[in-house]
Design a binder for these strands. Structure first.
Lengths: 339, 339
DNA sequence: CTCGACTATACTCTGAGTGAGCATAAGGGC
DNA sequence: GCCCTTATGCTCACTCAGAGTATAGTCGAG
């Protein structure tokens, strides 16, 4: 319902993909090799008239850029307030760029992205694709091996920031948010708040992106704990995807999108741990998965388990009809870390 | 990263609001009086250059259209594949309209929308705003008084549709989806699947919108069970909002956005029931809310309870720091319906 | 060929949380 | 005071989840 006398913005829409896999118990995301400043970038491309639907447009871009043909795809969020490049406070025509972002899950065994594929079609934009581990970008999010040092470092930096607030009220508010998202009790750590944590760190100017977006250089090296930045707001987008996924695995059987047709229970557990960033109790995890009837036996055994061979399982899709919210509960073991 | 040789679509962006309140235990949504065919429409307006952020643009439009100034607002979904008006298979310039949709929650006690406010600013587009009960649009979603007749009617219509499938495979798939979303067991009813249910009914051509979108008139009256349609895809958007909200109240304290500053526990329960469409066990609900420390006593009593006066409570925001997922569990009482 | 390392799998114990319902308290109308 | 209404307190049974112990297979070193 456009109103006649009101101008509308010229808008460019970018379709951006967060493509997730879990390889050797490591959660990874697909990026294209860096921009001018050598920062990795998520695959994306502009929405075009020939794209029938938004999702079709996304699949098309990903295929052209990386050769990957996606399976599970889900819309993530629409970002409209992109940081503008310094020196360009606003586009001349008053327009703006929207990013409609999607998460895609691909099984480890899926085709490996092949940038040459793109080059053969003579695209000037072809760049090398690579898998980057999530936790290289978010070291504080990986609690699988116990409370990571980066977590304490982030908390300390935030506490300094909170204490430096101009007035008591701001100080209290900052401390409140810090304790809410980075609370010191490892048992109360809430994996779902990954996005909140990134946003807090950004706001506290502890992420270099905050400085770049402001058109300035970071005051100094921020330390290894702060992780690897991506171009523009792509690290924020990745944080959004992580938060969303961590929630989703608890009530929908999406984990299986990340696994091959058959897998062992340990493999399933490691995948759940990779996504949630938390160590799980092995026996209880198996009990949960089996008595929820999420999987069924194939009858085959995995030959290279190392010890006693594990049974190979397969996902049982019927579970969706039987249980309202089939998924894996993720509560960290009290002892922290793997046994 | 636009690619030089690829055309981009001219895109118009519409910001659309699903504004929710609960009045007298009825969940309602704010609509503007009908379009040409007298169908209600959600408040919306085009994104403009002067809007700083998407959310600011939305708030601005809602304020201009209805006089409401929104509190809690959350992005819902971006729809890009709007049904095109019949006779216009595609816009001449190849462009399209995106709808970025938001859910807003307002307390019952909030200001009542006043369309005259808009008229005084001489907008030709001013139309009367009204609150429409959700369940007028989705009669099958309201299970508070026990299994509603509309639910059985919808299921029956879907089963007919499934049986009429051309081949056995399609037949099985349709029956599967029907039983997944509309399963006959009232105990297994999953409130979160509201969107899936609407989409299934749409696909089965049991919603008039499906016919309109195809450029045809529905073959006949569909029966009261099919509920009240909205303009374009707005009923789908509302279904998306319902699904999202039903999920969210279980792990975030958003219910309180719908309530005045102080309220009785029964009022809180009725609000939870209104949103979830399911009757709750009174004593257990109180136990949950109190021992989760979601609320605290104000010391005051509600004078017009009817029987024994109820204590007035208030939300305790500190709970967000103490509990990872503060919210109200919604499991229907086994007996169904209110006692 | 036996032992030890390693991993898979089975089972037990225990306490917290939840579904259900009974019982009691505190108002109002008559 | 009786009865209706709603609020509030409490019990009981049962399920499920966290933690840990115990047993079963397989491999490789000695």
């Amino acid at each position: 319902m456009p109103v006649p006398d009101t101008p509308t913005s010229p808008v460019t829409v970018d379709l951006t993909a967060v493509i997730i896999a879990v390889t050797e118990d490591t959660p990874v995301v697909l990026v294209l090799s860096g921009d001018d400043e050598h920062r990795p970038t998520l695959p994306s491309g502009p929405l075009q008239p020939r794209h029938g639907t938004l999702q079709a447009g996304l699949r098309n871009w990903v295929e052209r850029r990386t050769g990957l043909s996606l399976g599970y795809v889900e819309q993530l969020y629409t970002f409209g307030d992109r940081p503008l490049p310094p020196g360009h406070p606003r586009r001349e025509d008053g327009g703006r760029t929207l990013s409609i972002t999607y998460v895609a899950l691909v099984p480890e065994a899926g085709p490996v992205p092949d940038p040459t594929r793109d080059r053969t079609t003579a695209r000037a934009t072809a760049r090398a694709a690579a898998w980057v581990p999530w936790y290289a970008c978010f070291p504080w999010e990986d609690g699988r091996a116990g409370d990571p040092p980066a977590r304490a470092a982030a908390r300390a930096a935030l506490e300094t920031w909170a204490a430096a607030a101009p007035d008591a009220e701001t100080r209290a508010a900052r401390a409140e948010r810090t304790s809410l998202t980075f609370g010191a009790d490892p048992l109360a750590w809430d994996g779902h708040r990954a996005l909140e944590r990134y946003e807090l760190l950004y706001e506290a100017a502890l992420m270099p992106e905050a400085w770049w977006d402001a058109g300035r250089a970071p005051p100094g090296p921020l330390g290894a704990w702060s992780g690897r930045p991506l171009v523009l707001d792509h690290r924020r987008i990745l944080a959004t995807a992580i938060s969303r996924l961590r929630g989703k695995i608890t009530y929908r059987p999406v984990l299986f999108e990340l696994l091959p047709e058959t897998f062992t229970l340990l493999r399933l557990q490691r995948t759940a741990e990779a996504i949630s960033g938390v160590p799980l109790h092995k026996q209880n995890f198996r009990r949960l998965v089996t008595q929820q009837k999420l999987v069924e036996e194939t009858g085959a055994l995995d030959p290279d388990t190392g010890g006693r061979p594990a049974r190979l399982m397969r996902f049982r899709p019927e579970v969706a009809r039987e249980r309202p919210a089939p998924g894996v509960r993720v509560t960290a073991t009290r002892r922290g870390a793997y046994p």
